[in-house]
């Protein structure tokens, strides 16, 4: 489904996502090994797959603990896709690139 020409209206979302602006938020906890890996992995993923059409915000919840409740945080590191909607959440150090891309619906 990725290679064929997409008829507008049939698979609108897919087209949108390929062109859409990605707004991402990565919640980490200080400089824990998981956090460091997650930051590196996410940055690399963004550069590779969302070149130029993403914004990434990295939040250290040690600094902003109120964010933890506000954003329903539980497991960290967590990558949140705020845009395009709907919101998606990925947890882990983002080492499994395939899962990250699927999760963010960047690549089917």
């Amino acid at each position: 489904m990725s290679e064929q020409y997409i008829v507008p209206g049939d698979n609108d979302d897919y087209i949108d996502k390929n062109k859409a602006m990605y707004s991402l938020r990565l919640f980490v906890t200080g400089a824990s090994p998981n956090s460091i890996r997650a930051i590196a992995n996410t940055k690399k993923m963004c550069e590779d797959h969302l070149n130029g059409r993403y914004e990434l915000e990295i939040i250290d919840i040690y600094q902003q603990p109120e964010m933890a409740e506000l954003e329903q945080l539980l497991a960290v590191p967590m990558l949140m896709r705020r845009l395009p909607l709907p919101e998606r959440r990925l947890i882990g150090d983002m080492s499994d690139l395939n899962k990250v891309l699927t999760g963010l619906e960047i690549k089917a």
Binding site: R37, N41, V76, R88, L90, I91, D93, S95, K99, G103
Partner: peptide, 8 residues
């Protein structure tokens, strides 16, 4: 939630 590796 999608799990993409080690987390805590």
């Amino acid at each position: 939630i999608e799990e993409t590796g080690e987390y805590d």
